[in-house]
């Protein structure tokens, strides 16, 4: 069932178009992640949906109703900001209560929802503190608490984890994921981190220069990137892109192959190269290889421990069935 729909939505700042006309459907209960490099317009898109920016052209529908000119507070959405945007002069309880106060929800109902949210988010002991006295993770949870109590039809997250340290980020990611499973509310999540996108999303929207490059489930994007941009953006380490004669062999302008779809051998293989740096992660080893006839240094994943000296000659072979072929325009060639 359609929840939020953008029809030909365009955004100009002064005379610069930052988002060319764009169509997008978001279904009820879906977890959608907008991902892309910085400056790709993903935050602007989120702010258009939130109503914090005016739509220049096009229509934004929520539940099938034109909401293009609806005030942000009337869209039934809740938003969690990168900076958390907690009200510094209010306590945690007052922060969480703020949207309910604005909606004139009765006191005892407010209290009930605060108590529930605090219990769910481990904030019960901090209700009387002010934001300044909390850690980053706690502030993040207060921001989420403030969003939850409104019982919104959708949550908007604007890079909510980028101010947290790495360990906390993983924890919060899981919490948000669980929150979604529990509430089954639509969530729209903006990040530049493709790992967050892959782990959280039901549906990923890859954006580049304000335009949608591809929409799909994480694995769809991983398995069948529709163009070079998506191919390179999704997956870590990045997909190896091969151009020139080695690509021509596969009847493509360029060919992409992920590090895990290459096998490395010291004795024989399709391509001959020279080993560069090796990264030993324990479970895997990533080896950088300079292949004859290929400009870019390739990354190869070997399972377990693989020892190779720098400068040693190695042979690598792609799994042909997992090759991605692209034409001159950078679009995927379907075999």
């Amino acid at each position: 069932m359609r929840h939020i729909e953008l029809k030909g939505v365009q955004k100009d700042f002064d005379k610069t178009t930052v988002i060319p006309p764009l169509d997008l459907e978001i279904a009820k209960g879906e977890f959608v992640v907008f991902v892309g490099p910085s400056g790709c317009g993903k935050s602007t898109l989120l702010r258009l949906i939130a109503g914090l920016e005016d739509v220049t052209k096009g229509i934004l529908e929520i539940d099938g109703v034109d909401a293009t000119d609806t005030a942000p507070g009337k869209r039934g959405l809740a938003m969690v900001f990168q900076s958390y945007a907690l009200y510094p002069h209010l306590t945690v309880a007052q922060n969480i209560a703020f949207p309910m106060r604005m909606a004139k929800i009765p006191r005892d109902e407010q209290q009930r929802r605060i108590t529930n949210a605090a219990a769910a988010l481990n904030l019960t002991d901090y209700l009387d503190r002010r934001p300044k006295q909390l850690s980053g993770g706690q502030r993040q949870r207060v921001a989420i608490g403030r969003a939850i109590v409104r019982e919104p039809s959708a949550f908007l997250f604007d890079e909510p984890l980028s101010n947290l340290d790495a360990a906390l980020r993983v924890g919060m990611r899981l919490e948000i994921s669980e929150l979604h499973k529990r509430l089954k509310t639509t969530m729209i999540y903006v990040t530049h981190d493709q790992v967050e996108a892959m782990t959280l999303a039901d549906k990923i929207v890859v954006l580049n220069a304000g335009a949608i490059e591809q929409v799909g489930s994480p694995l769809e994007l991983y398995d069948t990137p529709c163009n070079l941009f998506v191919a390179k953006f999704i997956g870590s380490p990045m997909m190896n892109i091969i151009v020139g004669q080695h690509a021509a062999v596969f009847h493509a302008a360029s060919v992409g192959v992920r590090p895990e779809h290459l096998t490395i051998s010291k004795s024989s293989g399709t391509w001959t190269g020279v080993a560069g740096l090796s990264e030993h992660l324990g479970s895997d080893t990533y080896i950088r290889v300079d292949v004859e006839g290929i400009d870019e240094t390739m990354t190869v994943r070997a399972q377990g421990k693989f020892n190779v000296n720098r400068g040693e000659t190695v042979y690598i072979s792609p799994e042909v069935e997992n090759l991605h072929r692209f034409n001159e325009a950078g679009l995927r060639v379907v075999s």
Partner: peptide, 18 residues
């Protein structure tokens, strides 16, 4: 005062005056 706060309040349903 971070502009985020006014935006957060707008989303939280507060009018300009409130």
């Amino acid at each position: 005062i971070s502009p985020d706060l006014e935006e957060a309040a707008a989303i939280d349903g507060a009018s300009r005056i409130r």
